[in-house]
Design a protein around this nucleic acid. Structure first.
Lengths: 192, 192, 192, 192
DNA sequence: CATGAATGAGCTTTCATTCAT
DNA sequence: AATGAATGAAAGCTCATTCAT
């Protein structure tokens, strides 16, 4: 039982394949994305891909698995400031080229490849919500919130406003985060 | 030998093709949807489709064009009641089978077939927003809103909360509309 | 319900595809035979094949279906003469190039594509056996056979001798039919 | 550091590979059989196979080479009894799962890989024929046969009846051997 | 020498589109 | 104007074989 029998698998190759897959998944969408295309763009042959993943769905899910939300630490000193900063980060990622396309493709494939949506939730949706929920929970601990506020609903409103806005115009003004936070905050903060 | 010989059947055929296309677009997504599949489901031949529309994108666009938001008139007597009713309608349409898949597919195709998203906005997104915006405008006329409220942002929050919620769990509790409306309303109504 | 809507299917094309398929089936064997190869050899595109048959197995079975045993009428005046003539025909078809290869391929595929063997039996094996059995039945009606003779076993011996011989050497001497018939006949004819 | 270090394991590996190859050859047929499949079933890697044999054909040939007819000694005291016993053995091996598939595959591959048929003859066909021929030769020495009987043809009839029967129905009744032997024996034994 | 990795070519099948009737 | 037939291109996947460790 040696540590490494045979030719070692090239870690760099694997990374490149997944990177390319994430890109094509966003650019082309799941069903347009082809293994041929991934292989060509990654500079490997198709069996190199099939040796690692059992098929297209498996590759796509693995690719989504590699995505990790990389958000900077937020600490502005105030709840409103933190929420605004978090949503501005979100806004930026949404407005990146194909920023919404990946969201679209996992939703579109829900009926055919539900793993995509499941993983997308686990890797991207939930972590982002957790950040925002964390800010709200801290505010609650600091007794800034009125009683009975539903934090999950608040998170959905804050984040969702951007989805809805994008769906309406593809353009999100830079002050949008402030406006949204202000409104929601008025709705959930303890009345003065 | 009437003047309009052969035409009556035409309109019906056209309608059936578009109806089938809308269904398949939601069920399969744009790139999975095939002209073959549309032709078979509509009971016509492929050239019958190509005679009317120039290709797959044109057909899909035309299909989305036929979609019309059919929401019942809302009039509960209060702004909060009207908003809640409107969002409950929205929630129902979201939770229908493949309710989010069409949203997903038009987003996923934004890079390849932007007309789909454009028309989706015109036919579905904007009319729904208009209904909700209408309720808010009436509230403003009735001086129920505090000054400076951004109505579009409010609409985005109300509607978007559902997108965000769906993206997080695919399940939307029936009380969600009330919770969202309550929070937003507190944020935008004139303080008592 | 018109007689012929649309472009008529080219009967000649269909015939050519099947002809090529029979040839390649014998030359290459079932699993080596490819739809690509059939399409190229028949001068058509692959979808032209898929429009007519649902896949490789369907095409191969259809091809075997077209095979028809074309044996000349036999009438030499005597049972021994008729049997010898029938077996000489059989011998000739066996010794044709790839004459045994089709037999081999349907046997080899019994586990994977049993329809092939089933059809091969129906189209080739059984008709040939019927001819020989017919000769023996006539002999029985003429009271040439001893009582209790098992005709099916006799047919198997007559025909099978050629399979066994081929399996032993690929060469069948021209007098083989006479030898076999003589021996079997002595075994089944009424003792003088 | 002995003289033959590492060899013992080799022989066992080789044996296992060949054993698996024989099985897959019968189960899948030559062209369906894959080196990948052999390697997996034998628990070795592909280069381990390629180091020993030059390719697929070479491996299959070697595998057939290992086959040895293992028939029990027959001695019932009478020629008819011995022949019947020998054919019953044959019948059993034919009716084993995939019993005819190997016959089929070597016939099907005659055009592409004639070595398979050649070796199959040498290792299986001829030894079996030799057993039956031996019984007949002993009968001739005992002056039980009429003069001028062609022993090879007799062997072909006896053995071939089973091939023909299988090709007709895949089912061989247990009394078939007796019937065949009785008929052929009547045809070749010295008239009383 | 055995291993796992890599490859090019091939397979069956489906699609968007155009042609012929 | 509608049909069924035909097509070139591509998709997902597997194979026999070779390479690098």
């Amino acid at each position: 039982m040696e540590a490494k029998a045979g030719r070692p698998r090239d870690k760099e190759t694997e990374r490149r394949i997944l990177e390319v897959t994430v890109r094509l998944l966003a650019e082309e969408g799941y069903s347009r994305m082809s293994i041929d295309g991934v292989a060509a763009a990654a500079g490997v042959s198709k069996p190199t891909i099939y040796r690692r993943w059992s098929g297209k769905a498996d590759l796509a899910t693995a690719a989504i698995c590699t995505i990790r939300l990389a958000e900077p630490e937020i600490s502005t000193g105030s709840t409103v400031g933190d929420l605004t900063a978090a949503l501005q980060n979100f806004s930026r990622s949404l407005l990146r080229p194909n920023g919404m396309a990946l969201v679209g493709t996992v939703l579109a494939e829900e009926g055919h490849t539900p793993e995509l949506l499941a993983l997308f939730r686990e890797r991207l949706v939930m972590p982002r919500r957790a950040i925002i929920r964390g800010i709200l929970e801290r505010a609650r601990r600091h007794r800034e919130l009125r009683s009975g506020v539903n934090l999950d609903a608040a998170v959905s409103m804050l984040v969702g406003a951007f989805y809805a806005r994008y769906l309406a115009t593809s353009k999100v003004p830079s002050r949008f985060a402030q406006t949204v936070v202000a409104t929601v905050w008025t709705g959930i903060c303890k009345p003065s």
